[in-house]
Amino acid sequence: MNIEYLADHKELIPTLARWFYEEWAYLHPERTYADVEHLITERAQTNKIPVALVAFEGNELLGTVCLKVHDMDTRLDLTPWLAGLYIAAPRRKQGIGATLVSAIEKKAHELGVKTLYLYTPESETFYARHGWHVKERTEYHGCPVTIMEKQIVL
């Protein structure tokens, strides 16, 4: 598996936008597909937040993850965030997510991040297995979510 910057694979932005829109539109009902595509385009950088990574096996796109300044408009006091971890449905449960999380944590460390946050409606157990801790349980856009945090020390 290879992990590279989205900045080097901008042709993937429409695919990622479709994945994200189909998976998480319920959390942001005000966003259009075009809005999602624009937000992903902003992540096509290499040395500052927001930044996204993509995972490949050969030419097959396996998944993505990113760092964002903010991910919940209700928690602007917390920054930065791990966000957008998405693995192609047929390739889930194969360790790709864990590899991407580790890679983005390393990138966060390179950028001087000390504490990283995320929120998840359903993957708390996955993140807990990788050293993340529950900060709080709350509701976001009408959905129950768990905010988690991790001290970034490699």
Rank of each mutant, 00 (worst) to 15 (best):
L111Q: 03
L118Q: 02
L27F: 15
F126N: 07
V51S: 00
H133K: 12
A17D: 13
A108L: 06
I49R: 02
A98F: 03
V113W: 03
A55S: 10
Y5Q: 02
E122L: 11
K93S: 15
H28W: 13
H130Y: 10
T32V: 05
H109Y: 12
H9K: 10
T46P: 07
H38V: 05
E122R: 14
G63Y: 09
D71G: 00
D73V: 10
P80H: 06
E60H: 02
A25K: 14
A52W: 01
H133P: 03
P121E: 12
V145D: 05
A52E: 09
P144T: 02
V36F: 03
E105W: 08
G63T: 08
T146Q: 07
P144C: 01
Y127Q: 05
H130S: 07
P90H: 06
V54I: 12
V101P: 00
W81C: 00
V134P: 09
A98R: 09
A17H: 10
L100A: 04
S123Q: 13
A83G: 13
W19H: 02
G142W: 06
C143G: 01
E57R: 05
I152D: 06
D73H: 08
S123N: 14
K48L: 08
Y119H: 10
Y33R: 04
Y33G: 01
N59H: 02
T32D: 05
Y140A: 00
K48N: 10
P14E: 09
Y117L: 03
L111V: 03
F126M: 09
